[in-house]
Design a protein around this nucleic acid. Structure first.
Length: 167
DNA sequence: GTCACCTTAGAAG
DNA sequence: CTTCTAAGGTGAC
């Protein structure tokens, strides 16, 4: 039986992120909209299961920590259903990165056994449904260039700076 | 099938 | 130094 997708706002000092959950955990996290939409503020949270509220609390705490440049204590279950093995391999590798560390796209490619799939790694990062918690921003280009970021380079720079990573 | 993409090492000018 | 090329995975068209 299909679970309704629950969409909940995550309030942070950097704006209102949007988290989506299904029955298995967190499936997606979005950056705050560039232009604050006149949101239907009075979204009557229709019976959000306690399970999901608990995950949401973890998400909020983890997000706040990471945005402050600190490692998250605990993450909610991350759901990557529908994604390819390759992408999941990349994201699993990203989750291993310790605070303050960075990797290059090439480095990740080697670690997942596809040393030449450098650009594919970039593609996988861009397809990452859960930015920040899955630290795609800690991936720099080979010569310490910042590289790109589909969610907006400004975020990447900000996050890196807060973690004390210089370019 | 073709193209563009969060890349990169290497070769040529 | 700069510019150009080729190569890998994936999704959009």
């Amino acid at each position: 039986m299909k679970t309704a997708l629950h969409e909940l706002p995550v309030i942070t000092d950097d704006g209102e992120f949007t988290a989506r959950y299904n029955d298995d955990g967190l499936v997606e996290l979005n950056f705050p909209p560039t232009r604050p939409r006149r949101s239907p503020k009075k979204t009557p949270p229709p019976a959000v299961p306690a399970k999901i509220r608990a995950w949401h609390r973890l998400t909020g705490a983890a997000l706040a920590l990471v945005l402050a440049g600190r490692p998250a204590k605990q993450l909610p279950p991350l759901v990557w259903a529908g994604k390819t093995e390759f992408q999941q391999a990349v994201w699993r590798e990203l989750l291993k990165i310790r605070g303050g560390d960075t990797l290059s796209y090439g480095e990740i490619a080697k670690r997942i056994g596809r040393p030449k799939a450098v650009r594919a790694v970039g593609g996988a990062c861009g397809a990452n449904p859960i930015p920040v918690l899955v630290p795609c921003h800690r991936v720099l280009a080979a010569n310490h260039k910042i590289g790109g970021f589909s969610g907006g380079l400004a975020w990447k720079k900000t996050l890196l700076t807060r973690e004390g990573i210089a370019l």
